[in-house]
Amino acid sequence: MSNPVIVDVIRTASGKGKPGGALSGIHPVELLATTIRGLLQRNDLDPDLVEDVIAGCVSQSGEQAANIARNAVLAAGLPEAVPATTVDRQCGSSQQAAHFAAQGVIAGAYDVVIACGVESMSRVPMFSNFAGKDPYEPLGSRYPDGLVPQGVSAELIAARWKLDRTALDEFAAESHRRAADATTSGAFSAEILPIGDHAVDETIRASTTVDGLAGLKPSFQDPALAERFPEITWSITPGNSSPLTDGASAALIMSEQRAHALGLTPRARFAAFAVTGSDPLLMLTGVIPATRKLLDRSGLALDDIDAYEVNEAFAPVPLVWQQEFNADPARLNPRGGAIALGHPLGASGTRLLTTLVNQLEASGGRYGLQTMCEGGGMANAMIIERLG
C-alpha cells in the first residue's frame, strides 16, 4: 500500500458570511480556484500532475451548484484533463474529501490529489438548497415526533451533559482569546493564503468577555419545543455558536514515494480514519463514537495525542467531547476554534487540518486528532502524524 502524506495545507482568512463581509464580493468558484492556484504555486507543482480534486461544499445551489469543484479547477487554469468532484457530508465535507483523497492514495488510485472545500455563506445562504421544501419529510414514519434544527440539538446536549450557560460562554470567550493571541503572535501567517489584502480572520473578536456574552439572547427558544423538551434551559446564543462564514481551504496529498521523487518534503502523514453515524436528534454527538472508533483502530490512547481539533459548531460539542474523554483542555483547539475562526461549512474540514498541521509543527507535537460533528447525525475523525 502507498503511504498518504500531506505535502501542504492552506486556508483563506475567514470572512463574515453576510453582505459586506471581507470575502462576500468573491464568487465561490473563484474563491476556491484562488485557493487551489495558491496551493500549487506555493509548492511549484506542475498542475498536470494532479490526478483528481475532491471538494467539500454543503449548500450546492446557486453559485455553488453544478459541481463547484470542477468549475473551480477550470477557473484556476488547471488542465482540462484534471477531473474534480464535490462531496457533501455536511459540516465534515472537506474532511471527508481529505479522507477520500488519502484512501485513494492507499488504494493506488492516486499519487497526487487535492482535497479542498469552500462555502460562501454570504452569497449562498445556509438552507438555500432546500428550495423551500422539507427534505426530512420522508423520515416521518421513523421519527414521528420530528427532528430538530442543529441549534436545538446543541441545547439538548447541553442539558443532557449539564453544561450551563456560564460554561458555554466561558468556552466561547476562551476560543476568541486563543485565536486573537495566535493572530497577534503571527502563528496563523504560515497557514493563511491572502485573498487580495484580506489576510486576518474577520470573525475573531478579541474583546469578547463572559460578561458581554451573558447579555445575548438564546437563538433557538421556541414554545412548542419547550413543551416537548422541558429539560432545555435555552443557553445557545450567537456568542457561543460558530458564526456564518465565507472561506476556502485546500490540502495537497500525495503518496510518500511521489512526494520524494518530486523533491517535496511531506509535512504529515495520515495515521488513522473513522466515520460513523449517530442519533439524528442529538446529531452533534457523533464525535464521541467516531473518536472511540478512531482510537481503537489506531492503537493510540488520547494521552498520546498532542493536539485535538474538535469543530466548535456550538460550544457544547467540544465541551462534551472533552468531558467524555477527560481530555486536556490545553490541547483542545489550542489556536481557538470555529466560534472565533468561523465555520465556512464545506471548507471547515481542511481548515481544521491546516491549523492542526501548523500547530503540531510549531509545538513539536507528534500526533494530532481532528473530528467534526455533522448534520443528520454523523462524524468524521482522523489522526495525523507530523513528519520531520
Rank of each mutant, 00 (worst) to 15 (best):
L193N: 12
N240P: 06
L45E: 01
M1I: 12
A101F: 05
L23I: 12
F127K: 14
R42W: 12
D46R: 02
A327C: 09
A259T: 10
L332I: 14
I26R: 00
T85E: 14
Y143F: 15
G364V: 07
S219V: 06
R205G: 02
Q64C: 02
A250D: 10
W161R: 05
G56W: 07
Y367R: 04
K162A: 14
E312G: 09
V275W: 01
A313H: 01
T34K: 06
A199I: 02
T203V: 05
G286E: 05
T34P: 00
V310C: 04
A261W: 04
H176P: 07
I114T: 10
A167I: 06
K133R: 15
N129S: 14
P194G: 13
G336V: 06
F171S: 01
A381Q: 03
A272N: 07
A271P: 00
F229G: 01
T285D: 08
D306I: 03
E170H: 05
N43P: 12
L74H: 00
F325G: 11
G77P: 05
P230A: 04
A131E: 14
I6L: 15
L294P: 12
L31K: 01
P138D: 11
T35F: 01
N129R: 12
T166G: 07
G38D: 14
T184Y: 03
V287M: 02
A271T: 12
S94N: 13
P223R: 08
G104P: 05
L345M: 13
L302D: 14
D303P: 00
T203H: 05
A72S: 15
P334H: 12
L353M: 15
A330S: 14
F314T: 13
G263T: 11
E80N: 10
S249D: 06
E137T: 09
A190Y: 00
E309P: 06
G15S: 08
S2V: 03
D52V: 07
L319F: 07
E80P: 00
R42N: 15
G108I: 06
F100E: 15
S153D: 06
E30C: 04
E385A: 10
R37P: 00
V53N: 03
K18L: 06
